[in-house]
Write a protein that binds this DNA or RNA. Structure first.
Length: 598
DNA sequence: ATAGGGTTAG
């Protein structure tokens, strides 16, 4: 139909029937995959007398250009603008080009122009448009594309449905994604992967894993692949769901997918984020194809688990293997130095990174250096470093300094950092908590009260702390003061018992940090009900004696809980692994691997 | 011609 539309122009250009030379040019355009070749063919076509914007030539040339690995958009745009009546094929090609480019917005503008010209999309248009919407996180436009596809009765295509699924997942509307999924009569592998990934990306790992069980039930229809595995492993890693992750790992081995390097990287990440660095190393050793990402994941993983020196050893080995580190690798390296107090070595890496690896330090690297100095107690040096850095310090930089001040009880400098933070990122509840702890640590109760009032007045709400605990096949979520667990009464009884036994060991609650819990008035009770305590109590009740207890917490562990957990590990003879917001704590026999420094 | 993936300072 659209070819008919353009045929008058084609006829005017002398191309009602492609001439043999035009046909040869088109064949050449279709077979070549490099820009110079395409340019050459284009020039050749013009030399043999084919008009500059011959529609057939333009259509194939634009298609070939957009299909190049990094498409020369301006060249395609020029040709496109010369076409008086672009057909739907060429429009789709241009929309695809924009949708896949670093700046997808023009794809949506082109869609608006099509709307204005009452040119309806065909079933191929929607996936490109939805891809652009997904990448731009443009929910409104995406939803309008959805209703348009319904209106034009184009939703029966699996491609359109999968694109909708992916779009909703990418924009965080996993429920809408799931609804599209539920209504699909035919589902292929991409369908399953998109819906699983939609849940995995949006912090719903339990749903992702449930869906995986469903695919396995339908194994004869759809067989999960590497993409599925990476999504699942990512979901498990986020939860610290080690047992579930191990089951996925078994499936990977059984199904012969273990050679896939992306899966290997995801496994390294899973074991690192679950606090089993040994297994992360084992996966790394057994990987047939290690990429920079594999090395980087392992280095970061070792560093967060407190094995900074081992992390640096791997970095040296990587250099010997002539593998070029990325900027992320260097973040890992500096992170390792900072968590192990290796100040001088950290500075050596930092000062050499441009010369040795051609990597110009980014704000993240400067952040590591502030952390490195701050953790080591050199808070004034950290402040000087911030004042002299060539990049504009952001909120994270000042927050790092504030954290160091809280750690080393430096009220004056902490207030300097705070004054920057309320301008750069007002209303960040974590900053209030840090400053409050700093004041409380110095017994500055008036300031604490003032801060508390301004927090209430400004409507700043503390992020509720919650802890995850994996038992059997399930991951349990505990929130402070939570009563939703059917065994709440038993948990609270257990907490009583724990409190009694700890007191016998000479435990006294440290209530200085409790002021963070703005609404809670009874300090000591509040401490006992911190989410990690609930999770540990439940873990002690439900797991076999001597079994390790693993907790993942969304915030940092408070000083009092840290002390209590150390004692619990001793009294109950349990290894307790807590993944903090920023690092790992491995408690065993009354000691923590962070050396009380976090 | 049409859909999907991993590592990043606090």
């Amino acid at each position: 139909m659209h070819d008919e539309q353009i045929s008058p122009i084609a006829a005017a250009a002398g191309a009602g029937d492609p001439t043999p030379s035009l046909r040869r040019c088109i064949a050449l355009l279709r077979s070549h995959s490099s820009l110079p070749h395409l340019r050459q063919t284009h020039a050749h076509a013009l030399r043999t007398g084919i008009p500059l914007f011959h529609p057939l030539l333009a259509k194939h040339l634009i298609f070939s250009l957009i299909s190049l690995p990094s498409p020369p958009l301006s060249y395609a745009e020029l040709l496109f603008s010369l076409l008086p009546n672009p057909n739907i094929f060429t429009l789709n090609t241009m929309i695809r080009g924009y949708a896949e480019s670093p700046h997808p917005l023009p794809a949506l503008l082109l869609h608006r122009r099509m709307n204005a010209a009452s040119l309806p999309p065909d079933s191929h248009t929607y996936p490109f448009l939805l891809k652009a919407c997904a990448r731009l996180l443009d929910l409104r436009h995406g939803e309008s594309v959805h209703s348009l596809s319904v209106k034009n009765a184009h939703t029966s295509s699996v491609f359109v449905q999968n694109s909708l699924l992916h779009f909703y997942g990418a924009c965080g509307l996993f429920e809408s994604a799931h609804q599209v999924f539920e209504e699909m009569p035919v589902r292929n592998l991409v369908t399953w992967n998109s819906v699983i990934n939609g849940f995995a990306l949006n912090g719903r790992p339990n749903e992702a894993l449930t869906l995986f069980q469903q695919v396995l039930d339908e194994e004869n229809v759809v067989k999960p692949d590497g993409f599925t595995m990476v999504s699942l492993l990512t979901a498990c890693a986020e939860l610290g769901a080690l047992a579930l992750g191990r089951r996925v790992h078994l499936y990977i081995i059984k199904s012969g997918l273990y050679q896939n390097s992306h899966i290997g990287n995801a496994l390294i990440d899973l074991y690192s984020k679950s606090g089993v660095a040994v297994d992360a190393c084992k996966v790394f050793d057994e990987m047939p194809d290690r990429t920079v990402v594999s090395w980087t994941s392992l280095i970061v993983g070792l560093a967060v688990n407190g094995f900074g020196k081992e992390a640096l050893k791997f970095f040296d080995e990587m250099e010997i293997g002539k593998l070029k580190p990325t900027e992320i690798t260097l973040v890992g390296v500096l992170y390792a130095c900072s968590h192990c107090g290796l100040v001088d070595q950290g500075f050596r890496y930092f000062n050499q990174m441009k010369d040795d690896y051609g990597i110009v330090p980014r704000i993240e690297h400067y952040g590591c250096m502030v952390d490195l100095l701050g953790r080591a107690g050199l808070v004034n040096k950290a402040h000087d470093f911030i004042l002299n850095m060539p990049l504009e310090p952001n909120a994270v930089i000042w927050r790092t300094l504030l954290g160091a001040c809280a750690m080393h009880k430096r009220v004056g400098l902490g207030e300097v950092a705070w004054s920057r933070l309320i301008k750069l990122d007002p209303g960040h509840s974590g900053d209030y908590v840090l400053l409050s702890n700093l004041y409380a640590g110095g017994s500055r109760w008036t300031e604490v009260q003032k801060l508390r009032r301004s927090m209430i007045k400004g409507g700043v709400k503390k992020t509720p702390g919650h802890s995850l605990l994996e038992l059997g096949n399930k991951v349990y979520d505990f929130v402070m003061g939570d009563q939703s667990n059917p065994e709440t009464d038993l948990i609270y009884e257990k907490l009583e018992e724990i409190a009694k036994r700890l007191r016998k060991e000479g435990y006294v609650a440290r209530t200085t940090n409790v002021l963070a819990d703005i609404q809670e008035e009874e300090k000591e009770t509040a401490l006992c009900y911190h989410s990690e305590r609930l999770a540990i109590a439940f873990g002690l009740m439900k797991s076999a004696p001597g079994a390790a207890i693993r907790i993942v917490k969304n915030l940092r562990v408070c000083e009092d809980c840290h002390l209590a957990i150390k004692l619990i590990s001793k009294v109950y003879e349990r290894e307790i692994v807590v993944r903090d917001r920023s690092r790992f704590h491995h408690f065993r026999d009354g000691i923590c691997t962070c050396k009380d420094y976090w």
